[in-house]
Design a protein around this nucleic acid. Structure first.
Length: 138
DNA sequence: GCCAACGTTGGC
DNA sequence: GCCAACGTTGGC
């Protein structure tokens, strides 16, 4: 299984909004960036990802699961844009802030640090375990 | 196919 | 609110 990170402005789409969608989940739509789209194309159903709040909060706040592989984005007429569907799995007992991630030398290669603007990112297995640990998940 | 101009994102 | 980074667009 591979791991990912989904970035969202909480004022637009927050973890609470995602949780409210329940097991049915929701399209991760609105991505208009080729690199982010290409990352989504690599996702498989059952993969897990971090849900990250950008802007004021700047923290990984929960775990999501990919429940549908990449398909055309229903919010776009342009067939170039695709998205996956995700559902909320569980919140992190302790949100992991960007400051914490930046302060940990083991996480210095994370896309979150190196490529701040990319909204959908791959996360390595090692990074996944470290951030889960920091977040209070064993 | 290059590159300048422009728009957007996100951290500070 | 500003600005750096960076992606996209369009003229040549």
């Amino acid at each position: 299984m591979r791991h990912w990170l989904f970035k969202s402005e909480p004022s637009t789409w927050s973890w609470d909004d995602q949780v409210a969608k329940g097991a049915a989940g929701e399209e991760w739509d609105g991505v208009r960036n080729y690199q982010a789209r290409n990352v989504m194309r690599e996702m498989s159903v059952g993969d897990l990802g971090f849900f990250y709040h950008s802007q004021k909060e700047k923290a990984v706040v929960g775990i999501v699961e990919v429940i549908a592989a990449a398909h055309p984005d229903s919010t776009s007429d342009d067939p170039r844009w695709e998205c996956v569907d995700i559902r909320a799995v569980e919140p992190l007992p302790k949100p992991v802030t960007l400051d914490t991630i930046k302060a940990d030398p083991r996480l210095s290669e994370m896309a979150l640090v190196r490529q701040a603007r990319l909204s959908v990112q791959p996360v390595s297995d090692a990074e996944w375990k470290i951030v889960c640990g920091l977040g209070g998940l064993g």
